[in-house]
Amino acid sequence: MNKPDQPQATTLFAPGGYRYIPGVFQYSAGVIAAPGFDLVRVRLREILPLAEGFERIEAFLGKEGRPLTSFCACELRSPAPFDEAGFRAFNRLYVETLQRWGISDGETNPVARTNVCPIIDPPATPSFYAFTFTVERPAERPGFVVAGSGESVEGKANYRDHTIRLGDISPEAMREKARFVLGEMERRLSRLGASWRETSAVQAYTIHDLHPFLADEIVARGAAGSGLTWHYTRPPVVDLEFEMDCRGVAREVLI
């Protein structure tokens, strides 16, 4: 895997020991361990409400001897898709803790994130499912996480006006949505100096049937080399129907 040392590809977040792809204020598009560091993913046995989850993570990082700035990616679960105003309000609340931790300045945020909404047994409030942090350990292939992305162009004034086949969940529309999302995953992987070949896990988030395009759109392009984990969830914003993320992490733990 090539090292992403080009300034236009990633930005160094030195206090955390990782580089990131600049994104929107609520999250970055992806992260990769800086030289001398690697990534560890931690999944929670039970999801924890946002405030409680931040407290658990803070205690965990302290026990591991890592600074709060080592927090570099997270996976959230929310009760139901937000409307655009609700999503903005949630993001502002989420970023407050990252500001307190010295990670975000309120406008620039290096932490990658996926936030999706389970249909069955959803949480009562936005909650933590998993998180990733950096450790001081040289790695031949530095760990990386690509943030979740749905079938809309991010960073625009709204999602609706930039969503692929808005409101259409026909098999042809779902294929087109998936193709767009896969392309965005590949763009982000490329900026991290990686490809599908280096991924250790690829995750899809949708309540719609992905089998019609699983073989030729996902498997054929190499996105399922380590298998594909399908979460029966919705993306976090109303009217989005398909989301993916991926990672290449050598060490994962369950707590």
Rank of each mutant, 00 (worst) to 15 (best):
V135T: 09
H231Q: 12
P35N: 10
R247F: 05
A73S: 11
E140R: 13
S28Q: 04
E186T: 13
E52Y: 01
F133I: 01
R66A: 13
A194Q: 15
G225N: 15
M174S: 10
I207E: 15
G227L: 14
K63T: 12
F144Q: 05
V95L: 03
K3G: 09
G65K: 03
T163Q: 08
E55P: 00
D239P: 08
Y205P: 07
Y94P: 00
T199V: 12
P126V: 06
L68K: 13
G62W: 06
R113Y: 01
G17T: 02
P126E: 08
S78T: 06
E151K: 06
E55F: 05
V31D: 07
G53A: 02
T69H: 06
L93R: 11
E151H: 15
V153Q: 09
E96T: 14
D38I: 02
D245N: 15
R45C: 01
A250M: 04
L240I: 13
F133L: 08
L210I: 15
S127P: 06
D121G: 01
M1I: 07
A73Q: 04
N2E: 14
A139V: 01
S127E: 04
P126F: 03
F128K: 00
E75I: 07
P81I: 04
L50T: 01
G23R: 05
E198L: 12
R197L: 15
P236R: 01
G227R: 13
A223L: 12
P15H: 07
A157K: 05
E172D: 15
I218Y: 10
G143I: 07
V146T: 08
C74R: 06
A9L: 13
A157G: 00
F242G: 06
A112G: 08
Y20E: 09
E96N: 08
G183V: 08
C117E: 01
Q6M: 10
R247D: 06
Y232G: 02
F131V: 03
H208R: 14
V249A: 07
A147C: 10
D161Q: 06
V111P: 01
P212C: 14
P236D: 12
L182W: 04
I207Q: 14
E243C: 12
L39G: 03
N115S: 13
A9Q: 13
P142A: 11
F180L: 05
I32P: 00
G86E: 00
P4T: 03
P110R: 10
P49I: 02
S170N: 13
R77D: 03
V249K: 01
F90D: 02
A194C: 15
R19C: 11
V42E: 04
V181S: 11
R41Y: 00
A204S: 14
E84W: 06
R45K: 10
A85T: 02
H231I: 02
E136D: 04
A89Y: 00
Y205S: 10
R221A: 14
P79I: 03
G183K: 05
T69D: 08
I169V: 15
G248D: 05
T206E: 09
A147R: 04
F13L: 09
V238I: 14
I164M: 09
V40L: 04
G36Y: 06
W196F: 15
A112T: 06
T233Q: 14
G150N: 09
I47N: 04
R221P: 11
P142N: 07
P118N: 01
R56H: 09
S152L: 05
R141W: 04
